[in-house]
Write a protein that binds this DNA or RNA. Structure first.
Length: 425
RNA sequence: GGAGGGGUACCGAAGUGGCCGUAACGGGGUCGACUCGAAAUCGACUUGGCGGUGCGAGCCGCCACGUGGGUUCGAAUCCCACCCCCUCCGCCA
């Protein structure tokens, strides 16, 4: 959510931001409603002030055993007028809220302008995709041939867009999660969190998934709980409605959670395999920091995620999302895309974003500035490091051998009882 | 699921219709005094949000005692609904 004062005073800049994002949101009527709202508020406050002084006076008169009935009678009228004014206010506030909750974050000036994925800017490429002297298989064929992935039985248990990992497949994914958490906690200074995998609607409003994107979520029937689509939701909301000591920043947290996404509107996309699932595992990085540090923190957070890909030896590239591809709450996002031999292209495996104060304003995440003693909104960032399911896909495909086996990256072997290769049993 | 207790500022806690929301009292914190320094002691300061105004430090007003409604000239206090926490019982990994 943007600051109402900022929007009021920077209508052209906000409209430009909406245009850059190719957003259909209009600011038509904003200024007018905002002005009406503030006028009504001012009028109401004058009456309330009158009521407050009169009530004090009544209290004083009664203590002195004097007659206050005339004043009380007069105040009945004032009370009625206050009530009348107050009935108009909620509607104006609702309309303002509707504007503010639907305006996306302003893209940073460094975000490339564009109208779709093809306009994203490649900022780095690492590693060289291997060449294969045999026809490459995709992860579904590799996994099923090795009997470590079972999509048919997953469909029986749950349905489409679910996966069942077995034996060395399950071990591989668990090893990846442990490896990632260990690197981030031991080497990058993040504190591990194991949060609830469901959260209430207030948390989802805080990070911006609600009210606009409810159709992407699974709701637990008859409750206020939604399954988390990313650890961003529970972890960022750890500090919701808090004023943090300035010297505690930056907070750096990492968490493994399963992620649940309805994937409404993506029918027919990536239907094969475990690229796009209703449930997948992910290790997430979350930072809460001072505004002046957030751009540097975005670079280091992205680098922290890249370390995982490099240690695994997976070729990847980093792209800066263009204005049209940018998420609703984000001011700037780098996607990390891993090479998939079966698709002969790079696919998203991580997304690292700076939300500036957009989530912090919604979630009331503040800190006390040591110098001024004032409270200020923090900046929030997060990124996947990495999506574990897609990392399994990348490992199976990139390290497949002609005999159908898959060589396990060295860094994972200690997490897999020294296993060097997954072979057919 | 049943019974009971509770939610007030950074923490504990008092307050049961007006003199109580920069909110008693205790603790903590910051600054200052004393001291060679520290402890102890003494003093001052120490909630957040919104609106208005000013170039600005600021000033004026409004709102908030878990949340939302209601009663009243006036609500932390009375009424209704909901949320959360704690204790005991039942069930349970």
């Amino acid at each position: 959510m943007l600051d109402v004062k900022f929007v009021r005073e920077n209508i052209p800049a906000v409209e430009e931001a909406l245009r850059r994002r190719r957003s259909a949101v209009s600011l038509e009527g904003f200024v007018d409603i905002d002005r009406k709202r503030r006028e009504l508020m001012a009028k109401t406050e004058v009456l309330r002030a009158e009521r407050n002084t009169a009530s004090e006076e009544i209290g004083r008169l009664r203590r002195e055993k004097k007659d206050a009935s005339a004043l009380m009678e007069k105040m009945k009228d004032v009370a009625a007028r206050i009530k009348e004014m107050e009935t108009g206010l909620p509607e104006l506030e609702r309309q303002m809220e509707e504007f503010l909750l639907n305006i996306p974050n302003v893209p940073d000036s460094s975000v490339p302008d564009g109208s779709g994925e093809e306009d994203n800017a490649v900022v780095r490429t690492w590693g060289t995709p291997a060449t294969y002297s045999f026809p490459v298989k995709d992860h579904v064929d590799i996994g099923e041939d090795l009997d470590i992935l079972d999509f048919e039985r997953a469909a029986k248990i749950a349905g489409g867009r679910f996966c069942l990992s077995k034996g060395a497949g399950a071990l591989l994914e668990r090893a990846l999660i442990n490896f990632m958490l260990d690197v981030h906690t031991r080497e990058h200074g993040y504190t591990e969190m194991l949060p609830p995998f469901m959260a209430n609607s207030a948390s989802f409003f805080g990070t911006g998934q609600l009210p606009k994107f409810e159709e992407d979520l699974f709701r637990v029937a008859g409750t206020d709980y939604f399954l988390v689509p990313t650890a961003e939701v529970p972890v960022t909301n750890i500090v919701r409605d808090e004023i943090l000591p300035g010297d505690s920043l930056p907070l750096k947290m990492t968490a493994y959670t399963p992620c649940f996404r309805a994937e409404a509107g993506s029918y027919g996309k990536d239907v094969r395999g475990m690229i796009r699932q209703h449930q997948f595992n992910k290790v997430e990085l979350v930072k809460i920091c001072r505004p002046e540090d957030s751009w540097a923190e975005l670079e280091s957070l992205t680098a922290d995620a890249e370390v995982i890909l490099r240690r695994l030896g997976l070729p990847y590239r980093a792209v800066a999302l263009c204005t049209a591809d940018l998420g609703f709450s984000s001011a700037k996002t780098y996607d990390l895309e891993v090479w998939l031999p079966s698709q002969n292209r790079y696919r998203e495996i991580s997304s690292c974003s700076n939300f500036t104060d957009f989530q912090a304003r919604r979630a009331k995440i503040r800190y006390r500035d040591g110098a001024s003693g004032k409270t200020r909104l923090a900046h929030t960032l997060n990124g996947s490091a990495l999506a574990a399911g897609r990392t399994v896909v990348a490992i199976l495909e990139n390290f497949q051998q002609e005999d159908g086996s898959v060589v396990i990256p060295e860094v994972l072997r200690p997490y897999m009882n020294g296993m060097e290769r997954i072979s057919k049993r």
